[in-house]
Amino acid sequence: MLKIKNLKANINKKLILDGFNLEIKPGEIHAIMGPNGSGKSTLSNILSGKKGYEISGQITFENQNLFDLEVEERAHKGIFLAFQYPLEIPGVNTNIFLKTSVNAIRKAKGETELDAIEFLKLVKKKANELKFDQEKLSRQLNVGFSGGEKKKNEILQMSILDPKLCILDETDSGLDIDALKIVANGVNALRKKNNAFLIITHYQRLLNYIKPDFVHVLMNGKLIKSGGPGLALELEKKGYENLN
C-alpha cells in the first residue's frame, strides 16, 4: 500500500530524514518509535503533504507517486493524519466542518454526497462508539476543547472518513489512561483487512492497547532497528541510548 524508498528530507538546510525506508501492506499496523528530534513528525508531515521540505527519494501510495498529489488529493485517496496538535479554527462549527470534509472525500471518490440526515446519523453512531460528547460537535472546531477532547475529535474524524492509511502522530501524548483506552479501542474497531495504520509515538504505552505487527526505531533520520511487538518493550526497559 505505502512504499517509502530512500527518503531524505531537509528543512532550512538541516537534514532531518536521511535514507528512510518503509513498506506497509494492507491489514498491517506499524509503529515507529523514536526520541525527540528523530524525525517522527517530519515523516507524518511529508506523508500528509505539508510544504516547506526539500525532499528526495520515492514514496508511492497504491502504486501512485505520492509527490504528484496535493494535500487534499492524498486525503481523497484515503490518507488520514491524526495531528499531534489539532488546530483551533474559530467560528467554524465542528459538525459543518465534518460534513464538508466527508462530502469532499465522497465526491472525489465518485460517491453520492450525504445529506444532513444521513450525515448526522453517521456522526451519532460514531460519536457513541467513541464516547464522544455530541454537544461538542456543535461548538467551534477544537476551540476550547481540552487536549484529550481534541485527540478524540481526531479519532472521530478518522472513523467517519474511513481512510485506508491512518497515521497517528503522537496521538497518545497528553492523554490520560481512560482517554488512551478510548482512542485505542477506536483504532482497533477500525482495523480491517484492507486498511493499515502507522502509529508514531515516543512511548510504548499506547502499544499496550493497540497491537502492532511491526515496530521500528527511528533515530537520526533513519530506521535503525525493526522487529515485532517485543521490540517496544525492550525499548521501554533499556531506553533509546542503550539499544543494540
Binding site: 487534499e72 495531528f83 489539532p86 467560528g91 467554524v92 469532499a104
Partner: peptide, 29 residues
C-alpha cells in the same frame, strides 16, 4: 495561516473551499 489551510486540505478540501470555509468562520458573528 498556512497551518489552518493545510489542516483543511488534509481533510480533503481544495484550497478555495478551505479559504471559503475559514473566511465564513471569520465572518460568522
Amino acid at each position: 495561516s498556512e497551518e489552518q489551510l493545510h489542516y483543511c486540505q488534509q481533510r480533503g478540501l481544495n484550497s478555495e473551499e478551505a479559504v471559503g470555509l475559514i473566511v465564513n468562520g471569520f465572518c460568522k458573528e
